[in-house]
Structure formats: C-alpha cells, structure tokens
C-alpha cells in the first residue's frame, strides 16, 4: 500500500512516516500544497493523508481540485480544525474520513485500514479476510485454517496488497508502484523473492503466475 502524506509540520510528519512504515505502508511525504496537487494526481497512490493548513495551497482547495479532476483515491483529512462545521466542509469537498489532531497513532492506523478496506468494497471487519486467509494487520501475521504464520515486513506488504485485490491479475510494475515509495529502487527480483517465500509459507496455489501478465492471488479455496 502506497500512501501520500501531505503535512507541513516536519516533526509530526517524521513520526507519522516512521509509524506508517513500521505498519508496512510505503509513504511519500510532501509539505507544500502545490506539489501535492501535481503528485497526488500523477502517482498511483492507494490513500492520501491530507492536512488542511498547508503552505502554497489550502488543503480543502487542493482536495476539491483533485476531485474535480476525477481523482478517486480515498482521502483522509488530518487536521487540528475539529469543529463540526469544518468537518462537514471537509466531507463536502470530497474527503472520505476526518481525523482531528491530536490523535492516538493506533486510532489513525485503524481508520486507514478501515478506509482501505472500504475503498476496495470489503465489509468493515476487524481483520482483512480474503479467499480463506485472515490477515492480522497489527501483528503482521496471517491465519490459515487456525494456523498462525509469521510474516516479514516485505511479505506482509505484498500479501496485504494481494488480499485487497483478490482474483485480479497484478503486473509486476503495478505491484512495485504500490508497494514502494517514490525513492526506493524498484527491483523486480525482490518481488519475485517475496512471492516465492509466500508460496513457501502458504502453499504454491495461493499465488498464480500468469506468464507475461503478472501474478494473480487465488487464495486457498480458489
């Protein structure tokens, strides 16, 4: 999952990036509204965390312009402006959720998970479930027929992305775009390694290879 964080407070952004990275998200960070307007629309993000008090361009304007331009990525507003009138304005501008500062990091994690599941058409459930597998996002483990398997950070990222897109054919390029932030060297060999390790832990049939097209998450009851 690749997130865009638009936040002008450097200390808060540092904390958030550390926290989100630990939870297996690839995070790109921008502090200026004008940069965010371009990059948010051109890079394939899975979710955008947006602060409203931004230099360059106010957050609400930025959001309205994204939505007017047809950007459908879920946007979570993270702001100190907590009055109900402002929340309503935020949602009217096209936000999908609203978290007010200060917040507990766990609360933000839960809201991000819920928003990602909702945007992929999955019901609001405590764990991400797909094709017989159950992913515990806080422990970074996967349960398969009551057997809990530990995952490395790279495996966890990859499996989560597969589980949010069950049955879809995902090219290597697309996987790389969504699993790594804009500054990481994208190496398709790393992907292949992670896929093979997942197959080793969960069974060969869980991830199919479509030659020349990419991978497809089939699950265990495909």
């Amino acid at each position: 999952m690749r997130l865009l964080l638009v936040e002008d407070s450097v200390p808060l952004a540092d904390e958030l990036i550390a926290d989100l990275t630990a939870k297996g998200y690839a995070v790109d960070w921008l502090a200026d509204g004008r940069d965010a307007l371009y990059q948010g629309a051109s890079e394939p993000y899975d979710l955008i965390i947006l602060d409203l008090g931004l230099p360059g361009k106010p957050g609400l304007e930025l959001l309205a312009e994204w939505r007017a331009g047809g950007l459908s990525v879920p946007v979570l507003i993270l702001t100190a402006r907590g009055s109900w009138a402002e929340r309503i304005d935020g949602l009217k501008a096209g936000a999908d959720d609203y978290v007010t500062k200060p917040f507990h990091p766990e609360e933000l994690q839960l809201r991000i998970q819920a928003l990602l599941r909702r945007s992929h058409g999955l019901a609001n459930q405590p764990h991400l479930e797909a094709s017989g597998l159950q992913l515990n996002e806080s422990e970074q483990t996967v349960s398969l027929e009551n057997r809990v398997t530990e995952l490395t950070a790279g495996e966890f990222r990859l499996l989560r992305y597969f589980m949010l897109h069950p049955g879809q054919i995902l090219s290597k390029t697309r996987l790389a775009e969504h699993l790594y932030d804009g500054e990481t060297e994208r190496d398709s060999n790393v992907l292949e390694v992670h896929v093979n390790r997942l197959r080793g832990k969960l069974g060969r049939e869980v991830i199919e290879t479509r030659r020349g097209q990419g991978y497809r998450f089939a699950g265990i009851k495909a």
Partner: peptide, 12 residues
C-alpha cells in the same frame, strides 16, 4: 492548529 499539531507529535 499551532497547539494541536505539536500535541499530536507528543502523543505519537
């Protein structure tokens, strides 16, 4: 905004 952002940092 000025007070709550540092608070958010501290809580994090």
């Amino acid at each position: 905004h000025a007070l709550k952002t540092p608070l958010a940092v501290l809580v994090s």
